[in-house]
Design a protein around this nucleic acid. Structure first.
Lengths: 212, 212
DNA sequence: CATGAAATGAGAGTAGCTCTCAAAAGGTGG
DNA sequence: CCACCTTTTGAGAGCTACTCTCATTTCATG
């Protein structure tokens, strides 16, 4: 949620060893985000202005921009990516690459859904409906893709900057992105874990055999 | 360049059977685009405003927005995609899927580079440097990905809306997008065709064997 | 408590983009 | 050639995301 948060500790305001200043910052940050989610639920994304968000969060518009560079960033917090990468790198060499990915994907999905399933769903829906949000999300995923490279390269003994590794990383990202979209398009009814598994199958082995 | 253009005919203003109105529209469209490319080359993307573009193209700002929904769209004309799809669908069933893709990619790259290599390069560079342009380009590529689905499904005898086909299409798109980025990051020095071939290899067969 | 640093608020300014409405230009039938 | 209808255009007002600056307030520290 904020730098140096141990990730799985329940997020927010407590944590006494931090100074008052730091605690206030965290509070403000989550106040802004909560206000945003609430307003979006009431009025939709486009109808929600920064001014309204600021008002409900009881800060000035300037402060909103001080905490989040863009409106889209308020709803898109992919602070989990670095931690996923960490975990991916920590998997034993004996495990196959795809198994490692599957494992880490499962774990982070569980963590996200455990902490705030509502937010995960809203985010997924926004990614489908609002182009700007989708764009920003893709941006952030390709940043993740860039980080992925080094992990891939380590495992496979390849140059992380080679075209092959780059392409492999981004095609994984693209495929997994599509899972998210497909899931949201079907109103988050399916089991995300199963969808991810099927996607990884396709990425690893290509399309299943003809049926017709 | 515009609906019902036979694609390889040199693009623009001539074509007598069209009414004066249509011809003027085409002229305006290319005037706006030319102005934009020129200004970007002089001052960079961000420093170039719609007002400047309008002025140089000798139209009003309103007209600019009438022709292009966003500033990014002025530089990003992927009007080739539908024609690629067409061609892809026209390839013989006997040819392997990847061979078909390779063939069509080669052809459209040749066409683009033949018509306006400068623009292709500027576009690629913008996609690397300007997040908004990159985002818009990805958007447009995933639209292409959606179209790709039906072609893939036909060839493989699968349901175009199945997760498998969706994931496959988007992972191809992601991988090929990365080729474009990598090419631009290396200043468009490499042979695009070769890069595409290597990318398709990776998408089809996964990463090459370990080297270390 | 005083001094310095960091966070905030207020406000002005820019630019992308939308909408409306009236004027102009292209097409068509008499 | 003219009158009529449709499409395109320009002018301008308006909204909002976002940036910058500067004065004020709020926390931290000796």
């Amino acid at each position: 949620m904020t730098p140096m948060t141990p990730a799985h500790s329940s997020p927010l305001t407590d944590r006494p060893q931090l100074g008052l200043r730091e605690r206030k910052k965290i509070k403000t940050r989550t106040a802004i985000r909560d206000a945003t989610y609430a307003l979006i639920k009431e009025q939709g994304y486009d109808a929600t202005t920064i001014e309204q968000i600021a008002e409900r969060a009881e800060v000035s518009p300037s402060t909103v921009f001080r905490y989040f560079p863009t409106k889209e960033d308020i709803v898109l917090t992919d602070e989990y990516d670095p931690m996923m990468l960490e975990e991916l790198r920590g998997r034993p060499d004996s495990e196959s690459w795809m198994d490692s990915v599957r494992y880490v994907m499962h774990r982070s999905m569980d963590a996200l859904l455990a902490e705030d399933p509502e937010a995960v769903r809203i985010r997924a829906h926004l990614a489908v409906q609002i182009p700007a949000v989708r764009a920003r999300m893709i941006e952030s995923m390709s940043a993740t893709g860039r980080l992925l490279r080094s992990a891939i390269a380590e495992r496979h003994g390849l140059d992380p900057d080679s075209l092959e590794v780059r392409v492999f990383a981004m095609s994984m990202v693209g495929g997994l992105m599509e899972v998210n979209i497909a899931w949201a398009e079907n109103d988050c009814r399916d089991d995300l874990r199963e969808l991810v598994d099927r996607a990884l199958q396709v990425i690893e082995h290509g399309l299943p055999a003809k049926k017709a």
